[in-house]
């Protein structure tokens, strides 16, 4: 294969991969973010504490995460067909991609949101803010850098899954790699596709790192103050003992 021939095939397939991953990412964030928040809020001590609901969501998320993607894709065929009218092509592949990524992203959101200092929530409640205010003004903005990292991890995982979807007619770079690289023994072409995927992933990671750094820079000494804070607390407790001996 010449470079020109490769290019002719590469660009449409790349576009398909981007569309597939793009749609799946947007859908995953829209559905996974509230799910992740619910995992935190319904947990013990959360604003919407409801342990049965929490257990159910947790179980669903765990099941979703433990299903191998390739099985999920086949198992969801009927659902996919009813949703987009077909089981092949990038539109069809986006459905199992989304379903597979939601629980993954929800857990990452949960971890990010849990990192937010409980004192901040207390402050908002003391000001007279309710649960919605706490989510909108504290939980989401304060965990934004971690949420961006989580979304990036999810996008990169989705690119990997999308290549797998290609093996069963999902379109995109995965299909190309299987059809040409594997079935027609175009080893060079396969490596070109692999190299392209590597470059895409690296670029996404770079952009994400840049954004996260910019967001985290807002509290430029945030890291050190956190360390100092915990040390200071210890000192305070010692002082407390000294100040009032009884």
């Amino acid at each position: 294969m010449t470079w020109d021939q490769m290019q002719e095939l590469l660009w449409p397939a790349t576009a398909e991969t981007f569309q597939m991953v793009g749609v799946a990412t947007v859908a995953t964030i829209l559905l996974g973010l509230p799910l992740g928040l619910l995992l935190v809020l319904t947990d013990k001590g959360g604003a919407l504490q409801n342990l049965p609901v929490n257990r159910v969501i947790g179980a669903v998320v765990n099941i979703g995460r433990s299903l191998p993607f390739i099985i999920l894709m086949v198992a969801l065929q009927t659902f996919t067909k009813s949703l987009v009218g077909t089981t092949i092509g990038w539109q069809a592949a986006a459905v199992p991609l989304t379903i597979g990524a939601i629980p993954f992203f929800a857990r990452l959101v949960e971890t990010s949101v849990r990192e937010v200092d409980g004192g901040l929530l207390e402050a908002v409640h003391a000001m007279g803010g309710g649960t919605w205010t706490a989510i909108r003004k504290v939980l989401l903005p304060e965990s934004l850098p971690a949420l961006v990292s989580s979304a990036t991890t999810t996008v990169i995982a989705l690119i990997g899954f999308s290549a797998m979807a290609g093996t069963v007619g999902g379109g995109g770079l995965g299909t190309l790699a299987v059809n040409y690289g594997y079935q027609r023994f175009e080893t060079t072409f396969m490596w070109v596709i692999v190299a392209e995927l590597v470059v895409i992933v690296m670029i996404i990671q770079l952009i994400s790192d840049f954004i996260v750094r910019r967001l985290a820079d807002r509290g430029s000494f945030g890291g050190t103050t956190r360390l100092l804070r915990s040390r200071r607390t210890e000192i305070t407790e010692e002082e407390e003992e000294l100040a009032l001996p009884h």
């Binding site: 004192g119 901040l120 807002r218 509290g219």
Partner: peptide, 12 residues
């Protein structure tokens, strides 16, 4: 209310 650890939002 004023807190020991200030409880200011680092994103603001």
């Amino acid at each position: 209310m004023v807190f020991q650890h200030f409880n200011l939002l680092s994103s603001r």
